[in-house]
């Protein structure tokens, strides 16, 4: 293990850039995935039954199929149609579509727990549907979903390692590189595991803080 750590030190810039790429991807898809989730959620609860069925189909399909299939489709499939995207672009698009589906589902669950009278009251006051969504529904639903949404951020961080399979030079890809260079596979992967554990621990601590701060008093948390 000591000699592997020495090797890591030698390739420090490479490891660090990998770590940076992991954090970049995780951060970007957490933001786009949340924005996408809100949009899908809006589409699902406003408009007619057809649109609701379509958005529910979207959520169901992306929850039911592996993300890696979507990534492979774009990364290995699209070039055959002459469309070549960078690994980062593929990862961002693929993750966003996938994470948005999950986030929309959490928001829907929280939405079902809202008091319908409250929405009626807002409409009775003369607010438009979009205003009701912005001013009454979204603030409550977002707070109710804080535990689920922060949990999704942890999943994003961990799952960003999948991008290694489409040649994105993230942290796990760099560790894989070092493993092959040194033939110390066990050491390399154990270190990788420990780093993910540390990163996730930081997010967990931050999430606990966020939960305490943003959970509405007197409102039951969505499971």
């Amino acid at each position: 293990m000591a000699s592997f750590l020495a090797l890591m030190l030698e390739y420090w810039p490479q490891v660090l850039s990998g770590l940076g790429n992991t954090l970049l991807l995780a951060a970007v898809i957490s933001v786009t995935g949340l924005a996408g989730g809100v949009v899908v959620f809006y589409l699902a609860i406003s408009g007619g039954p057809l649109r609701r069925r379509l958005t529910e189909g979207y959520i169901s399909f992306f929850i039911g199929t592996p993300l890696i299939v979507l990534l492979f489709l774009m990364y290995y499939g699209l070039p055959q149609w002459g469309l070549k995207l960078t690994p980062f672009t593929v990862a961002v698009i693929g993750f966003t579509l996938n994470v948005a589906a999950y986030n929309a589902r959490y928001l829907m669950t929280a939405f079902r727990g809202l008091d319908p009278d409250e929405l009626q009251a807002a409409r009775a006051q003369g607010f438009s549907d979009l205003q009701v969504f912005q001013l009454v529904i979204l603030p409550q639903v977002m707070r109710l979903s804080v535990p689920a949404l922060t949990n999704q951020v942890i999943l994003n961080l961990k799952d960003s390692s999948i991008a290694f399979l489409i040649q994105y030079a993230e942290f796990f890809a760099q560790m894989q590189d070092l493993a092959i260079r040194s033939f110390r596979f066990l050491d390399a992967y154990l270190v990788a595991g420990a780093v993910y554990l540390a990163l996730v621990s930081v997010v967990v601590v931050a999430a606990r803080w966020l939960e305490r701060r943003y959970v509405l008093p007197g409102v039951r948390r969505a499971r």
Partner: peptide
């Protein structure tokens, strides 16, 4: 719950032979 599946899979399948 903190370690990615892919990382643990590689530890077990490619790493353990080192041991």
């Amino acid at each position: 719950r903190a370690v990615p599946v892919l990382v643990l899979l590689f530890i077990v399948f490619f790493g353990l032979p080192n041991a």
